[in-house]
């Protein structure tokens, strides 16, 4: 019925598919083709190398942790920005987009300047013997930075449209603020929170520009997987670099699918709960 009324199905889908095919799929096919050059033995060798594993662990572990941190802080920030009125609210609201817009290299340099042992914050943290720059914590910091806007920006519109009646009802029934939050609001936000989490995760996994400035890049400790790809490239090991790239891509894809499943599950759970 719809199909007869609305025009442009052929052209819009055709255009989108062609564009996507040329810009994304064809290049990624080239990547997969190049990666296949290392063969099964080569892949096993690559994946069994402790250094590769350590780098993947740091990239994915760091990104998961960073996304979790972002989920918590993002929820807090989104909540405060939507629910409370205070001076400078608009300014801080605008500031949230900064990591989207600030070039990653600039972010990396600025964060390193701040958190290096002789920087404003780094010096202060050093007195507590907390090391951020040139340590795994620096990787985490940069990853939190680049992924931060995703959680806040996905949560905000939903928080705004959230039905306050439900909260009021819960409270009039004698629920405490905290209980209302945990039992009523959080479940309603869960699907959106997961979207934000997934986006922040995907962004952090592949991040290169800002991380290499602050990481220290010591193998087995603060070396991220994209850096390993770059190192392989510089030794003309295209196949190895491509293979690692494909492994990372598959990993992130699986993670995103898992998050999507969780999300579907949480939507169902919320709906059946109501």
């Amino acid at each position: 019925m719809r199909r007869h009324v609305l025009p442009g199905f052929g052209i819009s889908l055709g255009y989108a598919l062609t564009y996507l095919g040329l810009i994304v799929l064809l290049p990624l096919a080239a990547l997969a083709w190049k990666a296949s050059g290392i063969g099964v033995a080569g892949l096993l060798h690559l994946l069994s190398s402790p250094r590769t594993l350590a780098a993947l662990r740091l990239s994915f572990g760091g990104a998961l942790l960073a996304a979790a941190v972002n989920a918590v802080i993002g929820l807090l920030v989104a909540w405060v920005l939507v629910r409370y009125r205070f001076p400078g609210r608009r300014l801080f609201d605008a500031l949230v987009d900064l990591p989207f817009a600030l070039p990653t290299a600039v972010a990396g340099i600025a964060l390193t300047t701040l958190y290096a042992p002789n920087g404003w914050l780094g010096g202060w943290l050093a007195t507590w013997s907390i090391k951020v720059a040139y340590a795994p914590l620096g990787v985490l910091l940069a990853m939190v930075f680049v992924g931060f806007p995703f959680v806040v920006r996905t949560l905000q519109p939903v928080l705004e449209s959230l039905d306050r009646d439900v909260e009021d009802a819960a409270e009039s029934l004698g629920a405490r603020r905290w209980q209302t939050f945990v039992r009523v609001i959080l479940p309603m936000l869960a699907p959106t929170l997961l979207t934000g989490f997934a986006l922040a995760l995907a962004r952090a996994v592949g991040e290169y520009g800002s991380v290499i400035f602050i990481a220290g890049n010591i193998p087995m400790r603060s070396e991220i997987a994209p850096l390993l790809i770059v190192q392989k490239l510089e030794q003309f090991d295209y196949a190895g670099a491509a293979a690692l790239g494909v492994v990372m891509l598959l990993f992130s894809f699986v993670l995103l699918v898992v998050v999507a499943l969780l999300q579907r599950w949480s939507v169902r759970w919320t709906e059946s709960g109501r």
Binding site: V24, R203, V205, G209, P226, V230, L249, S252
Partner: peptide, 9 residues
């Protein structure tokens, strides 16, 4: 997909 591809790639 491009969101989950490392910029290097």
């Amino acid at each position: 997909l491009p969101f989950s591809v490392s910029p290097v790639i």
